[in-house]
């Protein structure tokens, strides 16, 4: 199922469309994954990560890790049948370890914390092999940790995301980011999350099952795909809802009510 590229998540993200002719379907798009404490959405990142390596011979991933060290991703991806270390040796996987990143406190003369991070991304892209520059995916895991690194300044984070977003429109790169929705859900700053949602072309919301915990269903996903014409704006919004079950080596996606 996974290999046919025809599971529900692939369809929702647009991977099913003519694999060889089209460029990478996420080219020039920003995929925002929103999860919550009860249900982690990291599997969507892994899914896209794996897909970008397996479906294209010449693609590269720049991974900004604020949440986990590389070993974590290496183990997870190996289970999914994808070797990150070898991809790194091939120059197709750039891992930027941001775990210890702490931006200087505001008010200091050189306050350019996230600007230097963006600089690192640009440098990593410039170091890529020209052949691999066609389908670059920038992955950010995750935005709330990024915000912590930026001393809680959501404005800086939005600036940073804006700069990453310019990469998608200028060079046709893909941007994938994970965010935790329940941190921002109540009162104080809902605008921060909405602002990112405005930026996003594809919004993947991962929630626990609405009807309560279940053994065979680990959660529900809503994929909201804004069909954008870069010139005209949004031409339609497609919404898909389905359930998922995380297994050891893969993830099953299915419509509600089709599993007993």
């Amino acid at each position: 199922m996974e290999h046919q590229g025809l599971n529900l998540m692939d369809q929702a993200l647009g991977f099913h469309s003519n694999v060889t002719q089209q460029p990478w379907p996420l080219c020039g798009r920003f995929v925002l994954v929103e999860d919550c404490v009860d249900t982690s959405g990291a599997f969507v990142l892994h899914h896209i990560l794996k897909h970008s390596f397996t479906s294209r011979p010449s693609s590269a991933v720049i991974f900004l890790a604020f949440a986990h060290p590389i070993n974590h991703y290496d183990r997870v991806l190996r289970k999914l049948g994808c070797n990150l270390s070898s991809q790194r040796d091939n120059g197709r996987f750039f891992f930027l370890d941001m775990l210890m990143l702490q931006c200087p406190v505001e008010g200091k003369p050189k306050h350019d914390g996230l600007a230097t991070v963006f600089e690192k991304i640009e440098r990593a892209i410039s170091e890529l092999h020209p052949e691999n520059k066609k389908f670059v995916t920038v992955v950010i895991d995750d935005i709330s940790c990024l915000e912590v690194a930026a001393n809680g300044s959501s404005n800086d984070v939005l600036d940073f995301l804006h700069y990453c977003y310019t990469l998608t429109s200028e060079n046709g790169y893909a941007l994938v980011a994970l965010n935790h929705q329940d941190i921002y859900s109540d009162g104080e700053r809902p605008a921060f999350m909405l602002e990112i949602e405005y930026l996003a072309d594809i919004l993947v919301k991962v929630d626990p099952l609405a009807t309560g915990l279940a053994k065979d269903v680990h959660g529900q996903v809503m994929v909201l795909n804004k069909e954008t014409q870069k010139q005209q704006g949004i031409s339609s919004i497609k919404v898909q809802n389905f359930h998922f079950k995380i297994k050891e080596n893969n993830i099953e996606y299915f419509y509600a009510g089709t599993r007993t």
Partner: peptide, 14 residues
């Protein structure tokens, strides 16, 4: 306000 219609009857919003 502020959120998409989750289980909207029409999957395409135009």
């Amino acid at each position: 306000q502020g959120s998409y219609i989750r289980n909207s009857s029409e999957p395409n919003l135009t």
